[in-house]
Design a protein around this nucleic acid. Structure first.
Lengths: 248, 248
DNA sequence: ACAAAAGTGTTTTTTATACACCCATGC
DNA sequence: GCATGGGTGTATAAAAAACACTTTTGT
């Protein structure tokens, strides 16, 4: 590889050479199953080395001419047919030795992972099983061992989800379009833990804000009084944009 | 470059080839000059192409065997001798075409920038001028045109600073070790804008929290009653860790 | 009829906001 | 002695937290 050696020499003789990178994108895709009140992550079974046969976050390497975000959308689209979708960058993990493909002391490529955080609606998200069908939603408490440092990435994504839930309306990206107020409340408690707030206070606080539209439609789930279905009204929410701490 | 072509072929014939990256680290280093109440960023004058002679954020390319964070600390240490220091990752900018060194349609290297956010104490930070001395603190309102997409990165860092100021004790990383309460207040107003809170309320809220230690020492700055010097007590702050929204 | 879930309301406590006023210093 | 910045206190409004109660359904 004469081209590479040459490039090194141009810079400076005393410095250690620059690292060459392949850049991967890994997605932490969350959803919730409102019926069973489970917070879910999308995992895929790896079909190649390294970590063949292990579960991992859906990821891909960035291709020529492709932006990071494009790559993130691409894997998403390969794994899932989703109508709605929220996506944002999470964090970049890039220490040496995070990928076993990096030969310890060689001058081969380093692998760097830019992680993205995504939210989709469970009911509208159709998983795309390739021939080997290694793809599944996992409840957060039952996540198996993951390839690479994906457990760490997932943990980081989970933290981000908890934070975002408190001060931005991301809940409505994961909930179905029509939801009951206890769906919403349950989502908050499963993500934030019990005793983040009393139901009745949570309820009145949110209703007072005025961006939850009552459709009037009632649904009955087993015993008990039927609940109203609500819809998130993005326009009515607009004035709260950029103002933090609306929810709790 | 036969090695590279071979690697491509192993994967799949239909896919576009993977991009090869050089990874850069760019630091947004903030400080405040308490005397003049200016929020400052550290800029360096580029000594090489591209953007030769333009101001830019201090950055470097990641070397073989070096982690991203190591690289971030390395540039910092090259530019500044700082006792205290706060550093965290900001965001990764990685679209194609963000760096003019990328030939538009070639298969050359892409340049990706992982940005870091740093805070140092102005008084304790000694700038290291290399032979050409192209390094300086710039007041945020007077930042000139910057190389690459550094203006965007800086803007992003500024946003992060504003957020962090509200819910974490980063202010004490930028202030000198001993500071008056109006130093603190001024810092908040210069970063967050006027009318974020009335001085007297700000004051009593913070003192009630109990992690500001009054040293008893007084300083007089021109006319007016001399002010007490305070010190941030990290231990007393500990219970507030992870609890957001302590300051406002 | 009664348990279960949804929804309403009231009381108490805490926190935010506004603002009036006193204190110590330089000139 | 008065302007200047530092520091204290109080009165009012608003929001958070606790909890008691009503309403509507399935069984």
């Amino acid at each position: 590889m004469p081209g590479r050696a040459q490039r090194k020499a141009t810079k400076s003789l005393s410095h250690p050479p620059l690292a060459d990178f392949k850049v991967g994108v890994d997605n932490v895709i969350f959803s919730v199953d409102t019926d069973q009140n489970r917070l879910l992550v999308l995992l895929v079974m790896r079909q190649e080395e390294p970590f063949f046969g292990q579960w991992s976050l859906p990821g891909t390497l960035v291709r020529h001419g492709e932006s990071l975000e494009d790559a993130a959308y691409r894997i998403l689209a390969e794994k899932i047919r989703a109508r709605n979708l929220y996506l944002e960058q999470l964090y970049t993990f890039g220490g040496p030795d995070r990928d076993p493909r990096e030969a310890p002391d060689s001058y081969g490529d380093r692998y760097l992972s830019v992680s993205y955080f995504a939210l989709v609606r469970y009911a509208e998200a159709e998983l795309i099983a390739d021939r080997v069908s290694g793809i599944a939603w996992y409840s957060l408490e039952q996540v198996p061992d993951l390839a690479f440092d994906h457990k760490q990435i997932l943990e980081y994504g989970h933290r981000r989800l908890r934070n975002k839930l408190e001060y931005s309306p991301v809940a409505f990206e994961v909930l179905p379009e029509l939801f009951t107020l206890s769906d919403l409340y349950q989502l908050y408690t499963t993500v934030l833990g019990e005793n983040f707030s009393d139901y009745s206070n949570f309820r009145s606080r949110l209703l007072k804000l005025g961006f939850l539209e009552d459709t009037g439609v009632k649904v009955s789930r087993g015993a008990g009084r039927p609940a109203s279905l609500y819809r998130f009204d993005a326009e009515a929410f607009a004035p709260y944009k950029d103002k933090p701490m609306v929810f709790i």
